[in-house]
Design a protein around this nucleic acid. Structure first.
Lengths: 265, 265
DNA sequence: CCATTGAGGTCCATATGATGGACCAAAGAT
DNA sequence: ATCTTTGGTCCATCATATGGACCTCAATGG
């Protein structure tokens, strides 16, 4: 596989860096409430001194910070600065914000942008709808394995079959242990239906009554850039309304893909 | 000094993490053109295998990525995602964008938001003005020691005197070697004038003819959040026009500080 | 067309620096 | 007043990062 001219040898190592960056990601996903040291220790599988040492290093770099009162860890300002600088290449959120506002206004429901992150999908932003009954199943920062949830399923379905199987295989354990309401075959069916209909549907699989539909956003070169999705209670996701919502999303996806084309040319 | 109840002992270490994160920052600042391995090696002072190993670790985490064709390193999507998540706490850019648009429209000149990053100021965004002659001295991602440039000086002047001296002392070497047109006393004078006038002025100190004025943005708790600034050629920065520009900036700074108050309450 | 230069990438013996069990301190909880 | 939970740290041991030497490819130039 891959990488042309240079031999792609080992040069493995820098394991503490790997560990530190895993912690960084972990703290990031917990961004809202802040992460406790004990949680971090548990979730990361590292032990306390190690975790603390790595956290200190991340703090020295400004990527995370610790609130003195609560002793909780949060993403720091350097993370924000880097993100700002990265948005030149990866500005999916910026490109999508207006679309989300359009969607939420037109449909009255809550809409989302997600990005692919390895074998997972992360929610980048949640744009509240105006309809008074809303589902709060998905918040910015939350992540689920690819295939779990509407936007996430849309992204998975947009990959080619060999990669889908790779992803599913990589996620097998998590799926079995944490997503009992799903099965690998279930997901494969969902993919088929998604490709067939042109949009992804989550009929309350994660939380009963909390439905969603999603559509993938593609880079000009065919890679998956992310996904838009809309969530609502089941009674607002009837078979008649679904295609209508899908059409709205399609329009916005086209707009975003147009901007991406411009950005990369 | 400081940190209350827990003893803040050593627990130093994780040096490779420090190094890796320095590289990350370095690649980030070079975000536009992408960073070459050889530059990274030179600027970081690390040697090639070490730098490469750390870069690989950063790539594994998705924080940076390497374009296969050019072999240059860029910020990766994870950096973007983290930044998005961090913007919940540190969303200076989001809060300022509208103000920048107002400023650039009202004045026809280019305007900027910067954030403090340790002893430096980083430019987060550059909003182009419409006036046909523009200075391109400051681009997003660029950084200068605190005190160098209008926004940067505004931030420095907003610190208390003991911290100013700490910052200046820390930057002494860089100032001497790379900013020969400045001197420590020069900067101290600039600070006095800034406090006096209520806005910071850079009368072409870095590049002749490229002037700027700046104003600091403060957090509700009195810490420096960042700065707005406006840049133009000298003929558009006459003594008469300066107070007018400063007034426009002041209005926008007030707006942003209002939003910050809301965000933290 | 074959040096030569320079950039990207890697190997591996060595010794530096990360590891984690044991421990201490503070703050709730009973 | 004692127990438990959570945050933080020390230091002897050994795993892991280090960097000089080396390889490969592409471009320059004689």
């Amino acid at each position: 596989m891959d990488d042309a001219q240079f031999s792609t040898g080992d040069l493995s190592g820098a394991q503490s860096v790997d560990r530190a960056l895993r912690l960084l990601a972990l703290v990031g996903r917990e961004a809202e409430r802040g992460a406790q040291l004990s949680d971090i220790v548990e979730e990361s599988g590292l032990n306390k001194p190690t975790a603390r040492r790595l956290l200190l290093a991340l703090m020295r770099a400004g990527l995370i910070e610790q609130e003195t009162r609560t002793r909780r860890y949060y993403l720091g300002e350097e993370a924000y600065v880097l993100g700002t600088l990265a948005s030149r290449r990866h500005g999916l959120l910026e490109l999508s914000l207006e679309s989300l506002r359009n969607l939420s206004e037109a449909t009255m429901d809550t809409s989302f942008v997600s990005a692919r992150r390895g074998n997972y999908a992360v929610c980048l932003h949640r744009e509240e709808g105006t309809y008074p009954v809303r589902t709060h199943a998905l918040q910015a920062g939350n992540q689920h394995p690819l295939g779990i949830g509407a936007g996430s399923l849309a992204m998975l379905a947009a990959l080619d079959d060999s990669e889908i199987e790779r992803v599913l295989a990589a996620n097998r354990k998590v799926l079995e242990t944490q997503y009992a309401s799903y099965s690998m075959d279930q997901i494969r069916d969902d993919i088929a239906r998604t490709r067939d209909q042109g949009y992804a549907l989550n009929p309350g699989r994660i939380f009963a009554g909390s439905w969603g539909i999603g559509a993938a956003i593609m880079f000009p070169d065919g890679r998956v850039a992310g996904a838009l999705s809309i969530a609502a209670i089941d009674s607002r996701m009837t078979a008649e309304r679904q295609p209508e919502l899908a059409r709205c999303m399609r329009i916005e996806v086209d707009r975003i893909e147009g901007s991406l084309r411009k950005m990369w040319s």
